[in-house]
Computed example of a mutant assay.
Amino acid sequence: MGLQERGGTALIRLYLERRSDLVRFFTMRLRSVAAAEDLVQDIYVRLSGLDQPTEIQNPMAYLYRLGSNLMLDRLRGERRTAHRDGAWLDSQTTRIGTEEISAEPSAEAAVAARQRLALLTAAIAELNPQTQRVFRMHKFEGLSHPEVAAALGISRSAVEKHMMAALKHLLGRLP
């Protein structure tokens, strides 16, 4: 007995009549009523998207096959997601025995680091402009004392004095 009606209307009617059977069938396979309900709803969405006349020899088998294909697609997607998430977690953590140790600092350590950075930034801003330039070029840009001296047109001794003044000031301001 074939099924031929415009736009999957007969399939939707059959789906509505047998919806509870579909939910039971997929609940057994997925071991979750909620997952089965979602899957059966996806079947309806697919059926409602059919707009060309279709000849289906066994409509009930078609509904179960459609649901099985959707279930397999969902399970493959979940497997890919789990693999991707596992790979990310492995890249972000270290294992010692069965314990996972995160490479990320704790929330408290992150807050403390931000506070220290704010104090350091404020202390640097308190330096006179020339000492700030020398400090930034040496510590942040990685230039040597002779390179800083050449760039600013001052003596190496002046660079050393600026650095000593900057470090003394920072040590006095930071805990």
Rank of each mutant, 00 (worst) to 15 (best):
I124M: 07
A125S: 11
A125R: 09
E126S: 09
L127Q: 11
L127I: 06
N128T: 10
N128W: 05
N128R: 11
N128M: 11
N128I: 08
P129K: 11
P129H: 13
P129V: 15
P129T: 15
Q130H: 14
Q130Y: 08
Q130P: 02
Q130A: 15
Q130G: 04
Q130E: 14
T131D: 15
Q132D: 07
R133V: 07
R133N: 11
F135C: 03
F135G: 02
R136P: 01
M137P: 01
H138D: 02
H138F: 12
K139E: 14
F140P: 00
E141K: 11
G142R: 10
L143N: 03
L143D: 04
L143T: 01
L143F: 09
S144Y: 05
S144E: 12
H145T: 11
H145E: 12
P146R: 09
E147C: 05
V148H: 03
V148E: 06
V148L: 04
V148G: 07
V148S: 03
A149Y: 00
A149D: 03
A150G: 03
A151R: 12
A151W: 01
L152H: 00
G153V: 00
G153P: 00
G153H: 00
S155D: 08
S155T: 15
S155L: 10
R156N: 14
R156C: 05
S157D: 13
A158D: 01
E160T: 14
E160D: 09
E160R: 14
K161S: 13
K161L: 10
K161R: 14
H162M: 10
H162F: 04
M164G: 14
M164E: 15
A165C: 03
A165W: 03
A166I: 09
L167W: 05
L167I: 12
K168S: 12
K168H: 12
K168G: 03
